[in-house]
Simulated assay, not measured.
Amino acid sequence: MPEPEAWEYSLYIPNDIRAVPVCRRLIRLVLTVHGLIHLADLAELLGAELVSNAVRHTKGPAALRVRWRDGTLRVGAWDADPEPPHFPGGFTAVPPTEGEDGRGLLVVRTCSDLWGWQPLSRFGNRGKYVWCELSAA
């Protein structure tokens, strides 16, 4: 099967936790139509974690971005808060085993090939973009 051409999709979402399953479905649909269904389960999980953090821990709108280029899938979430993503106890700490918070970025860090974040300022909008990458191999 030939390598898919580069493409990118973005979905702007309200600050509403109900947007998370919408984003999961969009990721699966996009990967299915582009012949990358083998990445769908993991990409859905990681995308849901990123979008969930964006809508749960910030105020204002958010966005999902799914991009394919050079054999790498990048899934990311933008939100309006320019502060770095928060790891409870710091980026090197082990997250708490009890409770429901504090493990999302650990899942992203553990399950992706590469992840990161960057502050953004464009057209007067501030915020950050948190992303992760999966290789097609």
Rank of each mutant, 00 (worst) to 15 (best):
T58W: 01
A6S: 15
R24W: 05
E83Q: 11
T58E: 00
T72P: 12
I17H: 14
F91V: 07
T72W: 15
L39Y: 01
R122F: 06
D113C: 00
L120W: 06
L36P: 10
C23H: 08
A40Y: 04
E49T: 10
L64E: 05
R65C: 06
W131V: 04
A93I: 02
E98H: 06
E49C: 13
V107N: 05
L46P: 00
S52E: 11
S121D: 11
V107K: 07
P2R: 13
L134N: 00
L73R: 12
K128M: 03
V75Q: 00
P84K: 13
W131C: 01
E44V: 09
V33P: 02
P82N: 14
P95I: 13
R18I: 08
A19R: 01
A54P: 02
V55Y: 03
V94F: 01
H57M: 04
W78C: 06
V108W: 04
L50N: 02
W131N: 05
G124K: 07
P4N: 12
W7Q: 08
E100K: 14
E100R: 14
V94Q: 06
T110M: 01
P84N: 05
W115G: 09
G90C: 11
D81T: 06
Y9W: 14
I27H: 05
P85V: 15
V94H: 02
W115L: 07
Y9C: 14
P95Q: 04
A6R: 15
Y12C: 06
M1W: 13
A48Q: 06
V51G: 03
I27Q: 06
K128V: 00
A62C: 13
R28Y: 00
A40N: 03
P14E: 10
D79T: 04
F91H: 00
C23D: 07
R25V: 01
F123K: 01
R18S: 15
Y12N: 15
L39E: 08
L31A: 05
C132Q: 05
L114I: 09
E100H: 15
H86A: 12
T92V: 10
R25H: 03
I27W: 06
A43G: 04
G89S: 11
Y9S: 10
W115R: 05
E98S: 12
E133T: 08
W115P: 01
A80L: 11
D101H: 15
K128I: 07
G90P: 14
L50H: 03
L114V: 01
D16R: 06
P88I: 09
G76Y: 09
T97H: 10
P61L: 10
M1H: 14
D41N: 07
L36K: 04
P85F: 05
G89A: 08
F87H: 12
R109N: 07
L36V: 03
P2G: 14
E133R: 02
H38V: 05
G76V: 08
A54H: 10
E8H: 08
V55I: 02
Y129V: 10
F123G: 07
G127C: 08
P96G: 09
A93E: 07
R24Q: 01
T97N: 07
R109K: 15
A62Q: 08
H38N: 12
G71V: 05
L64C: 09
R25G: 10
G104Y: 12
A19Q: 04
Q118D: 02
E98M: 06
L45R: 04
P61M: 05
G127T: 09
F87C: 04
S10Y: 11
G71A: 04
G116T: 01
A62W: 03
